[in-house]
Simulated assay, not measured.
Amino acid sequence: MKVAVMGAGAIGCFYGGLLARAGAAVTLVGRAQHVDAVRERGLLVEMGGETHVVPVGATTSANGVAGAELVLFCVKSGDTEVVGAEMAPHLAHDATILSFQNGVDNAARLGAVLGRLVVPVAVYVATDMAGPGHVRHHGRGDLLIGPSARGAEILTLFAAAGISARVSEDAIGALWGKLVVNCAYNALSALTRMPYGRMIRQDGVEAVMRDVVAECRAVAAASGVALAPDILDAVLGLAAMMPDQFSSTAQDLRRGKPTEIDHLNGFVVRRGAELGVPTPANRVLLTLVKAAEKAKEG
């Protein structure tokens, strides 16, 4: 199967690299620094204490998706519409598009731009970019994929690459669950500049996380989404599972890049306002991260 990865960041490089190692014809579409490094010496995939050099195609142009049967859409939430419009003219008419993005509405937003079905995917992995064209894996890697006509074929492809995946009718519900985790951890990790294990031990942090989860639960319920009854336990337990992990928001702030906070805590704040659900804890975290972004700019 010919695969294109739109957005060669940590998520795109990790899954694209695994698929390429398994023999899929993969093209990464990303920024020049990553593309140049991959073209020069291959993609570096660091996992399990080993670093693998993976030959893979790479380009900076959206026409890299041309002819692909499967497109993994891995760009930041704020870039969904712009990048979707750039790749639209090059998509094969029968291409299956998987949204490997944070937030709960990216698949719908991208589908509106493309005028076709986009399949939501809940991605459970800890990765970062150690350098240009060098992705580092810290934990997990399983996927929960919405239904599509190619579902069985996609699962076979991923299984051959050692990627644990399953198809579920409730992929959006899973994305809501992931959103709650992100709302509880991302901003706090960024603002404290701490990994999860150290962060959660600070006075008052767990109480703030509980407030954030309660607000997210209320907004989800008002939206007709039933979160898992043990969502709070799952959120608080993550720090022990990934004690050394910094959130993607923390990584973005450190590098002076725009964060996805508008599509995490910001989404909860906007949705809460629409439904009349108060979200003061999420609003404070949103405001502080936005202020930190501005401080980095100036």
Rank of each mutant, 00 (worst) to 15 (best):
G197N: 11
E153T: 09
A171Y: 12
G173Q: 09
A149C: 07
T192W: 05
V135G: 14
F158C: 13
P132S: 03
A171T: 14
N182Y: 12
H134E: 14
P132N: 06
D203C: 00
I172S: 08
L188A: 09
A159Y: 01
L157M: 11
L157C: 02
N182D: 15
S148Y: 03
L175C: 11
C183E: 11
N186P: 11
A174W: 06
R150Q: 11
A184H: 06
E206V: 04
E153L: 07
D142G: 02
V167D: 00
A165G: 08
V167E: 07
M199R: 08
A174D: 11
L157N: 04
A174S: 02
Q202K: 05
R193K: 12
L144I: 15
G151D: 09
M209S: 02
T192K: 06
G146W: 00
M199Y: 12
A152Y: 05
R201S: 13
V167A: 04
R193W: 00
E206G: 00
Y185E: 08
I172Q: 04
A161P: 05
L179D: 09
R198C: 01
I154W: 04
I172D: 08
T156V: 12
D170E: 15
G133Q: 13
N182C: 05
D142A: 05
R166Q: 01
A161L: 04
A187L: 06
A149L: 05
P195T: 13
L155H: 02
L144M: 13
R210V: 04
